[in-house]
């Protein structure tokens, strides 16, 4: 009986690790899939874009990204506005991310091992080998405590946080203009 308990104990410990190492596996295969799609000359630019988005989509938590990027202003808007903003932000993010992946990439992507920053935070670094340079892409994951799944809440491109950059921009925009204007400009 003791053996069983021990095995179970070890397994529960390793479950955590497997879920985490799964992030790497899933991300590796997704990035590779996207690169294959982007290289297919038979597809139009539009098709490449939408196919890549379908592949990467489940990893991103656009809701949380939208929330962080809006900062304090998020608490001041109502649920309908939150929904509208998230949708607009999501669309903008998708376009921007995929275009960049296409533009910066030449052939190869090197993935580094996961780094556990905190019990609920993990980062994954990729190096995109471009024509003229190597670009570092860092994906930041958080653990959703409710379903124990990991989601991307920010991407650092060559050291620049996308969400942080939006957060600054939105804040200075909202200093002089209204939320509705922000929504329109997205």
């Amino acid at each position: 009986m003791f053996k069983v308990l021990l095995t179970l104990c070890l397994l529960t410990l390793s479950t955590q690790a497997v879920v985490e190492s799964q992030i790497q596996k899933v991300m590796d295969s997704k990035v590779r899939q996207v690169l294959t799609v982007l290289k297919k000359s038979s597809l139009s630019q539009q098709q490449k874009q939408s196919k890549s988005i379908v592949i990467m989509d489940p990893m991103f938590d656009y809701q949380t990204m939208a929330m962080i990027s809006l900062g304090k202003a998020w608490k001041k808007i109502n649920t309908t506005q939150k929904r509208q903003f998230t949708k607009a932000f999501e669309n903008k993010m998708k376009r921007s991310y995929i275009t960049k992946l296409r533009l910066y990439n030449n052939q190869r992507v090197i993935t580094k091992p996961l780094k556990k920053v905190k019990p609920t935070r993990i980062t994954l670094e990729n190096y995109i080998i471009g024509k003229n340079d190597t670009y570092k892409v860092k994906y930041l994951f958080y653990k959703n405590t409710k379903n124990a799944q990991w989601y991307i809440y920010d991407v650092h491109l060559a050291g620049v946080s996308i969400v942080q950059t939006y957060r600054k921009q939105f804040a200075s925009f909202l200093k002089t203009k209204s939320f509705q204007q922000l929504l329109r400009s997205l």
Partner: peptide, 27 residues
């Protein structure tokens, strides 16, 4: 349904204050 998804997500997605400490004050 979307509002529901929105709400549950916001409430569940750990603590927003945890994220705030990772990002610079916007103003």
């Amino acid at each position: 349904s979307e509002e529901k998804a929105l709400k549950s997500n916001t409430l569940s997605s750990t603590d927003s204050s945890g994220f705030d400490s990772e990002f610079q004050e916007e103003d």
